[in-house]
Simulated scan of single mutants.
Amino acid sequence: MINKLGQVMLYVQDQDKAEAFWKDKVGFKVIAYGGSEEMGIKWIEIAPTEDAATTLVLHDKAVISKMSPDLNLGTPSLMFYSDHIERLHAEFKGKNIETGELVDMGTGRSFNFADDEGNYFAVMETV
């Protein structure tokens, strides 16, 4: 039986730029750095908080493509949650994050945003 989602892999063009985006603009924390010099692979594990149940792991898309050519390297559709959606929306705009309009979804307000590689994610108001 599966009892939780542990990690979500994000395959990125530039790990250092992706790390800076998630840390400096979104406010995530680095949980761990890892990898294997022998295999030529490194990863960066990040999360909204140090004790988050689910983390994101930033992998180099080109390296993973060589290791596993049949792997789907597309960006997953992720929905984040926020207790302060209006404040977060304004903060993202103030940090020059490409941000969609705040819209009422009937079950709460939501907006989308893009990382520096043009991948879109969404944030939903916690109700």
Rank of each mutant, 00 (worst) to 15 (best):
E101S: 10
L88R: 03
I64N: 07
L88W: 00
M79V: 14
G94W: 02
A90N: 10
T75M: 10
I97P: 01
L73H: 07
S68R: 11
H84K: 10
F80I: 05
K95W: 01
Y81W: 11
F80D: 02
E86F: 05
E101Q: 09
K93Y: 00
E91Q: 07
G100S: 09
T75P: 03
S65N: 14
D70W: 08
M67P: 08
K66C: 14
A62M: 13
H89V: 02
S65E: 14
L78W: 04
H84Y: 04
K66F: 12
E101R: 06
R87H: 09
E86L: 10
G100L: 03
G94K: 01
S82A: 02
F80A: 01
E86R: 10
G94M: 01
D70R: 13
R87I: 07
G74L: 13
L71R: 11
Y81L: 08
E98V: 15
D70E: 15
L73Q: 06
I85Q: 02
D104S: 06
G94Y: 01
L78A: 04
Y81S: 12
H89G: 07
S82I: 01
T99S: 00
L102Y: 02
K66L: 15
E101V: 03
L102D: 04
D104N: 10
D104L: 07
P69R: 05
V63M: 03
Y81E: 12
I64Y: 09
N96H: 06
I85P: 06
I64V: 15
S77Y: 14
V63R: 07
M79A: 13
E86S: 14
L78D: 06
H89C: 03
Y81P: 07
T75R: 09
G100V: 05
T75Q: 10
A62R: 12
L71V: 09
N96I: 02
N96C: 03
R87A: 12
I85N: 04
A90I: 05
E98K: 15
K95C: 02
T99F: 00
L88C: 05
S65R: 14
P69W: 08
Y81N: 10
D104P: 04
G74D: 15
S77K: 13
